[in-house]
Simulated assay, not measured.
Amino acid sequence: MPDVMVTEAPGDEVLRPQMRPGAGMTDATVVEAPAPAADGFLGETLAGLGVAGGQGLWVQTGLVASARAGRVVATSGATAEVELRPSGAAASSGSQISLQAMQRLGLPLGTLATLRVYVN
C-alpha cells in the first residue's frame, strides 16, 4: 500500500492562537519607551534570568530605547546599579536580568522578580 498523506485545513469555527504583543515586529515598528519621572523612575517590570553567558550587571527591558546607566530596586529594598539595555519590546513586556544582578539583589535564581527601574 503506498504512503498517502491527506491534509485538511481547519474550518472557520476553529479557534486560532492570537499573536503575542511584540511578536511579528518589523524594522518599521517603533516601540516608544516611557519618559522618566523627575526622580528617574521609568516603571515596574517583572524580570527573569536572562542569557546565561551575558556577563555584568544589566537588565534588558522595554522601558528604555537605548542603553543607559540605571538602577533597579527589588521588593526587598535591595538596590543594584545596572546597565539598562533595550529589549525592543513594549514597555509593558517582561524583562531579563543578568545572573550577577540577581545575585547582587539577593534574588533566588529561577524566580521572577518585580523590579522598580530608574534611569541615572
Rank of each mutant, 00 (worst) to 15 (best):
A91G: 11
T26C: 08
S95R: 01
W58T: 03
A113K: 06
P10L: 13
A78H: 04
L112C: 07
W58C: 00
N120K: 14
S76R: 02
D27T: 11
G22Q: 12
L63D: 00
E81V: 14
P34V: 10
G40Q: 03
G24I: 00
G110L: 09
D39K: 00
G53P: 03
G22F: 09
A47C: 02
P2D: 10
P86D: 05
V59A: 01
T29D: 15
G56E: 02
G11Q: 06
V73L: 02
G56M: 04
P21F: 06
A37W: 02
M102H: 05
A9K: 15
L115R: 04
S76A: 07
T114A: 13
A113E: 15
G106I: 02
V6T: 08
G77W: 03
S87C: 10
G54F: 14
V64R: 10
Y118I: 06
M19S: 11
T7W: 04
G11A: 09
A101Q: 05
E8H: 11
Q103I: 12
Q55H: 11
P86I: 00
T111Q: 09
A80P: 04
L42I: 07
G24L: 06
A52S: 14
R20Y: 10
A101L: 03
A38Y: 03
A113W: 08
M102N: 07
Q18V: 15
R71T: 05
L15N: 10
T111Y: 07
P21N: 03
L49E: 15
I97L: 07
E44H: 15
S92W: 08
E81A: 15
T111C: 07
T29K: 08
T75S: 13
L49S: 12
V117I: 04
L84P: 08
Q103N: 10
P10V: 14
G106F: 04
A38K: 13
V73S: 02
D12L: 14
A38D: 14
G11T: 14
P34D: 05
G48L: 03
G106S: 03
A78K: 00
Q55K: 13
A90H: 13
L15A: 10
S92M: 04
L15Y: 07
A37G: 03
G53F: 02
A80W: 03
A52E: 12
